[in-house]
């Protein structure tokens, strides 16, 4: 019938280009990589001196945990990154808000931030050691400085992105200025601030390792450096795996915080 009247179905041309989520895919990808790596090690393609097998890395981690060194190193690193990131973030939020709200703070702040932001903060560590001694303080200060500037920039751009119409609305209902900051600007800037947290947390991780490699008895960075000097590649890679786990944990926590604070989006 259709052919007789010359009717043909309209061909479908849409669809595709919509990458979705496959729950099993991440695990499969990890499994494939680790299996490939183990295979390369077992067949001798990867000489143990250059790259240990995943099995050896797990063993090394097991030894570290059993000897109590793991807690010591990870504990030292965690406390540095927690202090450094928190101090840098709190200061950065304060300055960023000031620059987002007051013309004077903004006009004075932007050139200063522009001049200091590009300095790789690790270059300041020797100076900070001179000022603060060789203890924890200079390492924490380095991380805090590295976190501070991106937080400032992220915060004041986030404040800029709060729709002015909402602020005018709040003013039209006579909200006092502190209430406008607390109830309109802060929540409105939250998406941008949390995006900045993602960046600053990875900066903090980089600076942590760098600072620990320059001078520290304990910490994942110093552990990796020491293992390298002794050519203990299994220990070294175990340290790197620890860093990866630390980074993943931070990003997981941030993801949770985002889902909780930004549930209105």
């Amino acid at each position: 019938m259709a052919e007789e009247t010359g009717q043909t179905p309209v061909p479908f041309r849409g669809g595709g280009f919509q990458p979705g989520a496959r729950r099993w895919a991440p695990w499969a990808a990890f499994a494939a990589i680790i299996a490939g790596w183990q295979l390369a090690s077992s067949t001798g393609l990867l000489p143990p001196l250059i790259m240990p097998s995943p099995y050896e890395v797990v063993l090394a981690l097991g030894h570290l945990a059993a000897s109590g060194d793991l807690t010591e190193h990870v504990g030292a690193s965690l406390s540095r990154i927690a202090w450094g990131w928190s101090i840098g973030t709190l200061a950065g939020l304060g300055v960023g808000f000031a620059m987002g709200i007051w013309s004077l703070a903004r006009s004075a702040g932007i050139p200063v931030v522009a001049a200091l932001f590009p300095i790789p903060k690790i270059a300041l560590l020797p100076l900070l050691i001179l000022w603060l001694g060789i203890d924890e303080a200079p390492k924490i200060a380095t991380i805090a400085l590295g976190v501070f500037f991106p937080t400032v920039i992220g915060t004041y751009s986030a404040v800029d992105n709060v729709p002015r119409s909402l602020i005018r609305m709040a003013q039209s209902f006579n909200l006092p200025n502190p209430a406008i900051v607390w109830k309109v600007i802060l929540p409105g800037a939250m998406p941008g601030i949390l995006a900045a947290f993602r960046i600053t947390s990875s900066i903090a991780l980089i600076l942590l390792v760098a600072a620990e490699m320059i001078g520290a008895e304990f910490g994942i960075g110093s552990f990796i450096l020491a293992a390298g000097n002794l050519m203990q590649t299994d220990q070294l890679v175990a340290g790197v795996v620890l860093l990866s786990i630390l980074g993943l944990t931070i990003s997981f926590v941030l993801g949770r915080v985002e889902a909780w604070l930004l549930n209105w989006r």
Binding site: S165, K183, P187, R265
Partner: peptide
């Protein structure tokens, strides 16, 4: 453009005008 706070519920948006 309504000027509602997207992070507040309907009642919360009305409350905003009263809270202070």
């Amino acid at each position: 453009d309504f000027a509602l706070l997207p992070w507040r519920s309907v009642a919360g948006n009305v409350a905003l005008a009263l809270e202070h």
